[in-house]
């Protein structure tokens, strides 16, 4: 289950108590600073990763849950690792990957580290933001921060229907496994194909009924959360602190 959808991960913590709008702005500032680090730098990405890890610890999000979500990045990094170090093969100093191992351009390795670490910082920040805020408050914050409504609505429906599809899939898997399906043979792959088709149709129909249930209770295209409390000095200071930390790492760490 996505970290933002899973209320079991909701724990009390200092970040959880902050205003959602300020958290969105603060994390956006940190990620923007991290993303703007020039390619040859390796110390600044380390500092940004350190800052993001510190925030994860402060957030009190269960570390196992956060690490499992970080695994999404593994295929991306592997794909980059297969291409990026060799993209700048022409010229430049070459280093051995290990003693007696293949020689790769140092510049290429730096670029790979730079790109991967930025992706990691971005994902960590997304996990912390989602895990400490929850989807309804996040959507409300986006709306108040004047994110285009069509985007906010799209995100809200992804939220609704992701859970719906997950439940439908769980039911179908139960029904499949109860009848002895073991997925061992190639000819059993057809079952997965028909499950995917059925999942789409069932989710579509369920989605229609959920939509009707929303309309029946007066939904008019706007998700209304509890009205936000006024901004406190602490909320504003969090944005300032995160922006200052991001800028300091960006420009002072060489």
């Amino acid at each position: 289950m996505h970290i933002a959808f899973d209320p079991r991960l909701r724990v009390a913590g200092p970040l959880q108590a902050l205003d959602a709008r300020c958290k969105v702005l603060a994390f956006f500032a940190l990620v923007a600073c991290a993303a703007s680090v020039p390619a040859p730098s390796w110390r600044a990405p380390v500092a940004f990763l350190g800052a993001a890890t510190l925030l994860l610890l402060v957030s009190r999000i269960p570390l196992g849950a956060a690490l499992r979500r970080l695994l999404f990045l593994v295929p991306v990094v592997l794909a980059l690792a297969a291409v990026v170090p060799f993209a700048k093969a022409a010229g430049g100093e070459k280093v051995a990957l290990w003693t007696g191992g293949p020689m790769v351009p140092r510049q290429g390795l730096l670029v790979l580290w730079n790109v991967s670490s930025k992706a990691l910082v971005g994902l960590l920040c997304a996990i912390i933001l989602a895990g400490t805020t929850g989807v309804p408050r996040l959507l409300e914050a986006f709306e108040r921060l004047c994110v285009p409504r069509v985007l906010v609505l799209t995100m809200s429906f992804i939220h609704r229907y992701a859970i719906t599809m997950q439940e439908e899939l769980a039911r179908m898997k139960r029904a499949r496994d109860a009848r002895g399906w073991r997925g061992r043979w190639i000819w059993q792959a057809g079952t997965l194909g028909s499950m995917a088709g059925t999942l789409f149709l069932r989710s579509y129909e369920r989605g229609e009924r959920v939509w009707q249930a929303m309309l029946a209770r007066g939904y008019r295209g706007k998700l209304i959360g509890p009205s936000s409390a006024p901004l406190r000095l602490l909320d504003v200071m969090f944005v300032v602190w995160m922006l200052a930390a991001g800028l300091a790492i960006r420009f002072l760490v060489r």
């Binding site: 929850g134 609704r160 369920r206 009924r209 959920v210 249930a213 029946a216 209770r217 007066g218």
Partner: peptide
């Protein structure tokens, strides 16, 4: 007019029970 659907899973779609029960009143403004 309050409409209650046959399958409660169609009616309950918010992260918590509180949010689900608050959905209608919030839409009333």
């Amino acid at each position: 007019v309050g409409l209650v659907f046959q399958n409660p899973d169609d009616q309950l779609f918010c992260p918590t029970l509180f949010d689900d029960v608050a959905f209608g009143p919030r839409n009333l403004g």
